[in-house]
């Protein structure tokens, strides 16, 4: 072990050094939410960006129309979110160059994003990713991811800071969890049905105004992207700024 002097160094007891090093991540707050309907899908998010207790900006968009009627968001560490979306947009551009302008299905987009995320499995993008659009049958589709690329197609999903506040509300109001047909003594579940766009938008607004009340990192503004067969449209509603 030692090349110059014989010593008992190898048997010396070391104290573990304290490691103090650069942390490449931060938490920029914010929350996002996607819901799929029968012939539409929405992807909504607040527009506040924070770090610690400071509000960086009251309007910093984090949902993007990435093309081919797919909307995408990556909430959590803002720099990783922006990088991931940039990378996907870029790859979509090249896909179109290479395949004569072919439209990318949301199913393929979803699988590709898994590879983008898993490609950085050992230095992950610290984000919860959601995409929304219409599937091959024209039905609404929402895909959600964990930071390393596990993904699933779902009816609805909340992500980000207030996900734990919004998700149970969505379970109850979109998938009718714990709802039973009146008079059946809790034996017959309320049957599932598709919600209309108006019902969904009302749910989204309620979810975000409630999250704003209870979560300090949520507020300022609500931006909703709506995908239908006519294309993508955006709506904005103010939220409380306190």
């Amino acid at each position: 072990m030692n090349s110059t002097v014989a010593s008992e160094y190898s048997s010396e007891v070391h104290s573990t050094p304290i490691e103090h090093r650069f942390n490449p991540y931060s938490d920029n707050g914010g929350t996002v939410l996607g819901i799929a309907g029968e012939d539409f899908a929405v992807l909504a998010g607040d527009t506040r960006q924070v770090v610690g207790y400071s509000i960086n900006s009251r309007y910093e968009p984090k949902i993007f129309n990435v093309g081919d009627d797919i909307v995408m968001t990556a909430n959590g560490f803002a720099a990783d979110g922006a990088a991931l979306i940039d990378k996907f947009k870029n790859q979509l551009k090249w896909y179109k160059f290479d395949h004569n302008g072919k439209k990318l299905s949301i199913k393929s987009a979803a699988r590709y994003i898994q590879h983008l995320l898993y490609g950085k499995r050992f230095f992950p993008y610290y984000v919860s990713t959601l995409i929304a659009g219409l599937d091959e049958e024209g039905k609404g589709a929402v895909y959600s991811y964990d930071p390393v690329g596990s993904y699933e197609k779902e009816q609805c999903r909340a992500g980000g800071a207030a996900a734990s506040l919004i998700m149970p509300f969505l379970d109850n109001q979109v998938n009718f969890k714990n709802q039973y047909v009146p008079g059946t003594d809790g034996k017959e579940k309320r049957p599932l049905r598709y919600l209309s766009l108006d019902e969904v938008l009302q749910l989204v607004k309620d979810a975000f105004s409630s999250a704003t009340e209870r979560h300090i990192q949520v507020g300022d503004g609500l931006e909703i992207f709506i995908v239908t067969k006519e294309g993508v449209r955006v709506e904005y509603y103010p939220l409380k700024r306190d």
Partner: peptide, 18 residues
Amino acid sequence: LLGVTYGSSTIATGFGAH
């Protein structure tokens, strides 16, 4: 330094942010 970006009508860095 993290690559985090944002835009606003009022921006201050460091102590000025507070």
